[in-house]
């Protein structure tokens, strides 16, 4: 695949800030995992978070939709602080989509039922309408023929695409991807990244924790480099990958064998 940066189909930078992180701090016991993270994510942007394992990227994502609580700082979603009230938090979660490294499809439901589950249970849609939405989304990720299959019968890449469809079924304002391809065979990584690129081209706001550097290089609007719970460098992919200003960024990329 060529490395050329394609011109975006829709203007990506927008004045609306979907997510605003300010001095976010998170501890697990004695371990300081997030050390004051500040970052803005604008509507339609794709922000990729890269960095060594254990640098806090996944933790930040899980703080974003309230799966983990903060020990300091604030996170704002569409202008409103993350609420403490469970019910309000749930409503906010319904407007964010999350895709997990381990897919976490519900094994007792078919692919179609998995995708329809959110609309049915959380949005209260009638089964027929939920199923119709689910069918359309499965077709969108290229798995219309697998609607009646159970997760156990699907490959890793197929399961992850169903997981993406499941998150999209809630019509979220932002999609959070937590190392979506780390658990996949190399052959199937491409099909998942393809779906993610399509989403990006359609203007979805995305925060992606990933080790897939070529994807970040091609698709991201901005890349944030994490190390030791801090963002050590942030900027457009051209800067980060071709001309990093911070030494540790260079070390990290060369360690991954990134030749630019």
């Amino acid at each position: 695949m060529t490395e050329s940066v394609a011109a975006p189909a829709v203007p990506r930078r927008d004045s609306a800030t979907i997510l605003r992180y300010r001095d976010v701090v998170k501890r697990f016991g004695m371990l300081q995992v997030l050390n004051g993270i500040s970052l803005d994510v604008h509507a339609g942007e794709v922000v990729c978070l890269i960095g060594p394992s254990g640098s806090g990227k996944s933790t930040l994502l899980r703080c974003t939709n309230g799966l983990e609580s903060l020990d300091g700082g604030t996170i704002e979603f569409e202008g409103a602080r993350l609420p403490r009230d469970e019910k309000a938090l749930r409503a906010m979660r319904a407007r964010m989509g999350m895709v997990f490294q381990s897919f976490e499809l519900f094994p007792h439901l078919t692919a179609l039922q998995n995708v329809a589950e959110g609309p049915r249970t959380v949005l209260g849609m009638k089964p027929a309408a939920a199923n119709a939405r689910a069918s359309a989304l499965l077709a969108k990720v290229g798995l219309a023929d697998k609607a009646a299959s159970y997760p156990a019968a699907l490959s890793g890449g197929q399961q992850q695409r169903v997981a993406i469809a499941r998150a999209l079924a809630m019509e979220p304002d932002v999609m959070l991807f937590d190392e979506p391809t780390s658990a996949l065979d190399p052959e199937t990584i491409g099909e998942v990244l393809g779906v993610m690129k399509t989403l990006a081209d359609e203007g979805m706001t995305m925060v992606v924790v990933t080790h897939e550097m070529s994807f970040a290089r091609r698709v991201a609007d901005r890349v944030a480099v994490f190390d030791g719970g801090r963002i050590i460098e942030e900027g457009p992919p051209a800067q980060i990958f071709d001309a990093p200003t911070v030494g540790r960024t260079r070390d990290f990329l060369s360690h991954l064998g990134w030749a630019g």
Binding site: L67, A167, M170
Partner: peptide
């Protein structure tokens, strides 16, 4: 977590 991420 996956269920709660959907808003359940």
């Amino acid at each position: 977590e996956a269920a709660m991420a959907l808003g359940m």
